[in-house]
Design a protein around this nucleic acid. Structure first.
Length: 888
RNA sequence: GGGCGGUUAGCUCAGUGGUAGAGCAUCGGCCUUACAAGCCGGGGGUCGCAGGUUCGAAACCUGCACCGCCCACCA
């Protein structure tokens, strides 16, 4: 069969993926017997656009999922998307803004309809992009966090946690985003360094004269000040808060407002900061909130939901925080109370979704008590029920859970799971229930309204491994596939997601939701920078796939995914992976070229009757099978990828294909043997490669498939049996050694020729003589063990095939005309020095009593052998040098 | 302020106690009927710095420097 000269990745991707789906290869069946391997995908946001983080994540998952499936596991990889409450709502709001509208103009119902429309339009986009990568999910089981079943799980969990007393309602200081107009959890606040100012403001005492100067970065919040604090040990202020060893209170008249507020001492105040005096705004600052509680201060909220000054702000009412700040500073200056302004670098909290500076606000919200659940999650990991890879992430996990605060789970958004809490309009009685109650159990009133708030999007994500499998129903899927085998995700959502799944899983099923957690590194650009839209350094995986093919993208990401490292992109690597795909493709062309007229399938051949080279490559294949599957088991994707690369390119292509040319030409038994080995190795190799490069492997495998002799041979690679190494090594120990020496000797000959300046370009003729092993001996004393072949006359033009023959033979080489003995002599001398140095090192070691008594015996033998080899090499190099000098 | 990770060839990275490695780049030589997206070869590294442990350290320990990240209520 004729194959085109280069591999067309695009057409292969389109053809095979659809076919695999149509044939149902990725469909999981809980009724099927066998060991289970189950994974739920970290659901991308519906608004999402595929980025390299997804590509890495999905590639690695697909590698292990495809491997397990081929290994015969009952495999489920469940895909889906997350409604991503705040993110999606923002995206749709932005879309609306283009039409000059905002969500309030639409109203809640119309807005939510609009988001659903958005979801219809874009929700599948990212999943299609994952398919483009070749993700072998069971696409018939696709889930969405707002699906009916998943929503029921959310409701059940909320109601249960409420009845257990773990969910409660409380008025606390929370993070408020004035743009999104919702509460945020601590995790949803990013911290950003900004250059602001430190305003020094004089706060006059209420009685008598004088004032205390406070320093603040937020003068506008002074409208809500209800106290001023100093450190009680601060000499400057001690007399103001202490008298005769007893605390006293000095009263301050708040400028611009006129309210009287107390001055008090507190250990929380840092004497060295600013003036050592702190204005206290309990309703708008976390530290001040604590001070307000301990000092029993008044809590005044000065901002409305949009961050504007509210009705308590008097003349400043209606101003934004920025406007209020300007105006207040100006007014203070006019009043002569502004002492000075210093530039000051500090960090502010911003909404991680819209970058708006968040406002700490006093607000009544729903909270989830975390302590007990967190302790259980910690214990589960400590007990080894769940293991992180790499292990160090466990410490990050522990650290967060140990210091966990209660989780603010309510959001004042419109897009998400509505909180199943209801209130009787008549008597204000609160009812938390799965179904809307028709009557108030307290007053029998029928006017009942549901809580307007929705749940934090991570509340439903936290149930993902359970809810997607049908929980709380006891479905066959849930029974069979929960707990899942592996969670593969990025470290950035360990807190948001991994920890919460652990806690919910343990709380509701008494089981960890996953046995292993593989944490992927962060993908960075070529300069090592995090890829963000604002930096404009985002590399689109779709572009990469178009340029290099999906296989090359997957393979490269696997190669770069060393544990514990950031992934840094390198276009060279993608290009190299594409070249690799093409290399395999061309190897396939070679094989097919040489199968003309061969029977289908090829008749089985006794391993023992095969030639040495044939048995050698089979032996190397066995090693590779072991190494690749072990590496995958250990989640060392980069190691597995490198082993495959090395074997396929540098052993199979560079060596075996060259070695096979001779027997293929010879016909008869040698040809049949070589053909069988080519097909056999290629087959196994493609099966190993398939999880990494599904498309090129399938494309080729289909072509060679008719020649494969296997009972019940699978129709396609995704369901083909994963290779296992042969029970017995096809090579004897002696043969293995000989073959390795053969390769080394060949490389040595090449090296020698280069070293001595006999470049292939000079077209020297080498005469290969059976029986005379001088030249090889020179380089490798153990070359004596090489197999003997018939004498050949070959044109030594630098071809691997020719050298393969050289390696099989004993070589004598004559110097060409015009050979520069001087240059050769210098190079040889350098080589000799090098070898001498190594030999001396070894000799010193061997004569060192401490080494001989303390090193383990194996090492001693090894060193002794190496020393002997070096000695022999030195002797022969000297001899060669002597000869050269003689001839010169 | 606490914690984590990194520092190995020009670049991107493997290497966890025994002669410093790979890919890419570079240089020299090859169009050789699978593949020039290829083949053969060369050059290039006091393994961030300083101590320590050890017969032996890139690797283990201590300290330091620089880069990056995470957590934290310094106004």
């Amino acid at each position: 069969m004729d194959l085109p000269k280069t591999f067309d990745s695009k057409s292969a991707e389109e053809r095979w993926f659809q076919l695999w789906i149509d044939l149902g290869y990725f469909k999981a069946d809980p009724a099927r017997p066998g060991k289970v391997f189950s994974v739920v995908i970290p659901p991308p946001n519906v608004t999402g656009q595929l980025h390299l983080g997804h590509a890495l994540n999905v590639s690695l998952q697909d590698i292990i999922v495809r491997t397990r499936r081929m290994q015969g596991y009952n495999t489920l990889w469940l895909p889906g998307t997350d409604h991503a409450g705040i993110a999606t709502q923002n995206a749709v709001e932005k879309d609306l803004a283009k039409e000059g509208k905002d969500r309030h103009q639409l109203g809640r119902d119309a807005f939510v309809d609009r988001v659903w429309e958005w979801r219809e339009t874009y929700g599948d986009r990212i999943l299609n992009q994952l398919r483009r990568l070749g993700a072998s999910c069971d696409w018939s089981r696709e889930r969405f966090t707002l699906d009916a079943g998943l929503s029921q799980a959310v409701t059940k969990v909320f109601v249960d946690l409420y009845s257990k007393g773990l969910i409660y309602r409380a008025k606390r200081l929370i993070n408020w985003c004035p743009r999104c107009e919702t509460a945020l959890s601590d995790l949803e606040v990013d911290h950003k360094e900004v250059t602001g100012s430190l305003w020094h403001i004089r706060y006059p005492f209420a009685e008598g004269s004088g004032a205390i100067t406070i320093a603040t970065t937020r003068p506008e919040t002074m409208l809500a000040d209800t106290g001023v604090a100093v450190n009680m040990d601060d000499d400057r202020y001690r007399s103001l808060v202490h008298k005769d060893g007893r605390p006293i209170r000095t009263t301050i008249r708040l400028p611009l407002v006129g309210r009287e507020i107390p001055l008090f001492g507190s250990e929380f105040v840092d004497r060295s900061f600013g003036t050592g005096a702190l204005k206290v705004t309990p309703a708008h600052d976390a530290l001040d909130f604590i001070l307000g509680q301990t000092e029993n201060l008044e809590f005044i909220s000065i901002f409305d939901g949009r961050g504007r000054i509210n009705e308590y702000g008097g003349a400043y009412r209606g101003l934004s925080r920025e406007e209020a700040r300007k105006q207040i500073v100006k007014d203070l200056e006019v009043a002569g109370l502004l002492e000075k302004i210093e530039p000051y670098r500090h960090s502010v909290g911003v909404c991680s979704r819209c970058d708006t500076v968040v406002e700490p606000m006093l607000s009544e919200q729903w909270f989830l008590r975390m302590r007990e659940m967190a302790d259980r999650a910690i214990k589960a990991v400590k007990d080894g029920d769940t293991t992180f890879h790499p292990k160090r992430w466990e410490n990050v996990f522990f650290n967060w859970l140990e210091n966990i605060h209660d989780w603010c789970i309510s959001r004042q958004l419109w897009w998400g799971h509505r909180i199943p809490a209801y209130r009787c309009v008549r008597c204000d009685h609160l009812i938390v229930a799965a179904e809307r109650p028709s009557r108030c159990p307290e007053c029998d009133g029928s006017d009942i309204v549901q809580d307007d708030d929705v749940l934090d999007t991570w509340f439903s994500s936290g149930l993902w491994p359970m809810s997607t499998l049908g929980w709380p129903e006891d479905t066959p899927d849930f029974a069979r596939y929960y707990p899942t085998s592996l969670l593969l995700t990025g470290f950035d959502i360990i807190f948001f997601w991994v920890a919460r799944m652990m806690m919910f899983g343990l709380e509701f099923t008494d089981k960890v939701p996953f046995k292993d957690v593989y944490i992927t590194p962060l993908v960075r650009d070529e300069l090592g920078k995090k890829m963000t839209k604002s930096k404009g350094n985002v590399v689109d995986p779709l572009d990469l796939m178009n340029q290099y093919g999906a296989d090359a993208v997957r393979f490269t990401l696997a190669q770069l995914a060393a544990q514990g490292r950031d992934v840094i992109l390198s276009h060279d690597r993608f290009a190299a992976a594409r070249a690799f795909a093409n290399k395999i493709w061309n190897a396939a062309r070679f094989v097919m070229m040489n199968l003309e007229g061969a029977p289908q399938p090829l008749p089985k051949i006794e391993i023992a009757s095969l030639g040495l080279a044939e048995r050698w490559i089979l032996s190397r294949l066995d090693d590779t099978i072991r190494e690749v599957s072990d590496s995958i088991d250990a989640y060392e994707f980069n190691v597995a990828a490198m082993k495959l690369y090395q074997f396929i390119w540098h052993e199979f292509c560079d060596w075996y294909i060259e070695l096979s040319k001779e027997p293929l030409k010879a016909g008869g038994e040698p040809q049949a043997g070589a053909r069988w080995v080519l097909i056999n190795v290629f087959d196994k190799m493609l099966r190993l490669l398939h999880p990494f490069m599904p498309f090129v492997s399938e494309e080729i495998w289909q072509v060679i498939r008719p020649y494969i002799d296997e009972p019940n041979l699978a129709a396609h690679l995704p369901i083909a049996k994963y290779p296992e190494p042969s029970a017995r090594n096809p090579l004897s120990a002696a043969e293995e050694l000989a073959m390795n020496h053969c390769i080394e000797a060949t490389e040595a000959i090449n090296s020698l020729r280069s070293l001595l300046g006999w470049h292939p370009g000079q077209r020297v003729t080498a005469t290969i003589k059976a029986g005379d092993v001088k030249e090889l001996e020179m380089w490798r004393p153990y070359a004596m063990t090489l197999a003997k072949v018939e004498a050949l006359n070959v044109d030594a033009s630098g071809d691997r095939a020719v050298f393969a023959h050289l390696a099989w033979a004993d070589v004598g080489v004559d110097a060409p005309d015009g050979y520069d003995f001087q240059v050769a002599r210098q190079k040889l001398q350098k080589q000799l020095d090098e070898v001498g140095k190594h030999a001396a090192q070894h000799e010193a070691r061997l004569s060192d009593e401490r080494f001989m008594s303390k090193a383990d015996p194996e090492t001693r033998v090894e060193v002794a052998q190496r020393f002997e080899g070096l000695q022999a090499q030195r002797k022969l190099l000297s001899e060669q040098l002597r000869q050269l000098e003689e001839r010169a």
